[in-house]
Simulated scan of single mutants.
Amino acid sequence: MSALHRVHDPGTLCPLRALTGIPCPLCGGTTVFIELGAAHPVKALLASPVVLLGAIGLATAPLGSGRRWWALDPRIRAWIIGVTLGLSWVWQLARFGFLPL
């Protein structure tokens, strides 16, 4: 069974996780797209909510959400990005068992 899983496993693509074993805030990004391709949106969301929502944001940016983002003050955008990455890192650390939640 493990040989079958390895055929579809892209391996660890994150350099931080490959070198240290600690996941980065965007770990799970590849898994998001694999799960979406397999029609498992809930699994994609659980792998990395930030990557999934970011991909949706990029896809919908031409429809108007991009203008609203760039209209924000640069300090507010930086704060939103920082807080989002911090929360994402906590999510990934919990997902990989580094934090008991």
Rank of each mutant, 00 (worst) to 15 (best):
S2Q: 13
L16I: 14
W89D: 02
I76D: 01
W91K: 10
L16A: 11
L13M: 14
V50L: 15
G54K: 05
Q92V: 09
R75F: 01
A78C: 04
T31H: 15
H40L: 12
P100M: 01
S2C: 08
R67T: 08
L26N: 05
F33T: 11
A39H: 08
L93W: 09
G82I: 00
M1S: 11
A3I: 02
L53Q: 06
L85V: 02
G97V: 09
L53H: 11
I22W: 12
L16R: 07
A71M: 04
A39R: 14
H5W: 02
G54L: 06
W91Q: 14
V7W: 09
I81K: 01
L99M: 06
F96A: 09
R68Y: 07
C24M: 08
G82C: 03
C24V: 07
S2M: 12
E35K: 06
C14D: 15
A39N: 05
A3K: 13
L53A: 15
H8D: 10
P10F: 08
A38L: 15
R17I: 03
R67S: 08
R6F: 02
K43L: 02
S65R: 07
G11Q: 12
R68H: 09
D73T: 08
G97I: 07
L87M: 11
I22N: 01
I34Q: 15
L53G: 09
G97N: 09
I76L: 13
